[in-house]
Design a protein around this nucleic acid. Structure first.
Length: 376
RNA sequence: GGGGAAGUCGCAUAGUGGCAAUUGCAACAGACUGUAAAUCUGUCCUCUUCGGAGUUCAGUGGUUCGAGUCCACUCUUCCCCA
């Protein structure tokens, strides 16, 4: 697996490139739909492929380990075959669950013990067994096991947490190098930079990550409660240190505006639950801002959601129909909203890529940004 | 014709002397960033400077310091027997 950096913007740090994997090429900047449990919620693989044109999706180590469990994934021949998805997959390591399930886990030097949210059973995740699980899942990009601390963590905690993440990264790398892929395709391991909102910690963490010669690198621990401006500053600091010729993945981010701003600061890869989760909850992302389709004002709007979209759902169904479906809690509403939002996110990054290549990314971004943040 | 039951804020419910009044649904808003989320929060009689104020429990009259709650009559609905 390797990354070709094609273009860098003159006025910003924005870049266009291609990440080559055994499951196909990924043109960056890219957005990766989140499919935690081996499914992008409410969206068929067929639609991901043909309507949304997703180039890579996510799975989650913690969730897939608990259910269906590694015996099933191994018997199926890996996650790609299990879920019928032949394009690349990236797996998060469970580091985010250290954050989001903070009430039911305990961190030690060795790893993190979780009390299962499904049946209460205890499971210990270590850097070593997380790599083993990701080998079994067979993801193209495996994420290192990290601790994702809250955005407002005090300096001392942030430093200790970062140092633990570094030691865990060392162990992840060791295990990574002493194990082999199980299904005949190449797998990469991405280190994760931590350090909260503290510039010196972010620098130190970026240097530690960069010291590992890996295909790509991730920036974690952002958009977890800190102000947006702080997030942008941290991205700038970290990307100033990470190797220029490798892709940078900003984990869990974000809004359309966040993504464009992060691209301008040199980020290449994104994932976020926002298009799917918010879609299921009635929010649509558009070039003119966000729409709450549950609002009464859409009751009589018989315009297609997006007449020029590559997704059939956008062209066929109207605002009024989607309003009705979501209000009625019909399953098709969840599907249409999810497809629309993912399609928009993929359009956002592919359009951004075009402008980077054409050389007018900065002015293009300035022209679309204000509208993206409007509430329609 | 005879007997019985019941009417509470859109709908359905709780309430048996201290109540602007329970709960669910509906309605109307808001939140959501490496997914314990088809979830969660708020408003939901009227007005409000958010401190409150004013009108309410089918209707009318009464008992009481105090009534959605007790009494009388009226209206309406439902059930059973002929």
């Amino acid at each position: 697996m390797h990354f070709d950096l094609q273009t860098t913007d003159r006025l910003s740090a924005a870049r266009a490139g291609i990440l080559h994997t055994d499951h196909g090429d990924i043109a960056t900047p890219i957005f990766m739909p989140v499919g935690t449990q081996g499914t992008v919620k409410a969206v068929h693989q067929h639609e991901l492929r043909n309507d949304i044109c997703a180039q890579i999706i996510l799975g989650n180590t913690y969730h897939l380990y608990l259910r269906p469990g590694m015996e099933i994934i191994r018997s199926a021949g890996g996650l790609h075959r299990f879920m019928g998805w032949e394009r690349p997959i990236l797996t998060d390591s469970g580091g985010f669950q250290v954050f989001s399930l903070a009430d039911s886990r305990k961190i030690t030097e060795n790893g993190c013990t979780f009390k299962s949210h499904i049946d209460g059973s205890r499971h210990t995740f270590t850097p070593e067994n997380v790599i083993d699980i990701e080998r079994t899942i067979g993801s193209d990009i495996m994420m290192a096991f990290d601790e994702c601390p809250p955005g407002e963590s005090p300096y001392d905690y942030a430093r200790k947490s970062m140092e633990l993440t570094h030691r865990w990264l060392d162990r992840c790398c060791t295990r990574f190098h002493e194990t082999e892929p199980l299904y005949g395709h190449d797998q990469a391991l991405f280190p994760i930079v931590q350090g909260c909102k503290y510039p010196d910690l972010r620098r130190k963490s970026a240097e530690h990550a960069a010291s590992k010669d890996m295909v790509g690198y991730a920036i974690g621990g952002l958009a977890v409660g800190e102000p947006t401006e702080v997030m942008y500053q941290m991205i700038e600091i970290v990307n100033g240190i990470l190797p220029k010729d490798r892709p940078r993945y900003l984990m869990g981010v974000g809004t359309p505006a966040n993504i464009l701003e992060a691209i301008a600061r040199g980020v290449d890869m994104f994932d976020c639950v926002m298009p799917t989760r918010n879609g299921r909850n009635g929010m649509l992302f558009t070039w003119n801002g966000t729409v709450n389709i549950k609002n009464k004002k859409w009751e009589h709007c018989f315009e297609p959601i997006d007449p020029t979209s590559s997704a059939e759902a956008d062209r066929v169904y109207t605002y009024a129909y989607l309003h009705h479906l979501i209000k009625s809690e019909e399953l098709l509403g969840l599907q249409i909203a999810s497809i629309h939002n993912l399609n928009f996110y993929l359009n956002l990054v592919t359009t951004a890529r075009q402008h980077i290549i054409e050389g007018d990314y900065t002015s293009w971004m300035a022209s679309v940004l204000p509208r993206l943040m409007v509430r329609v």
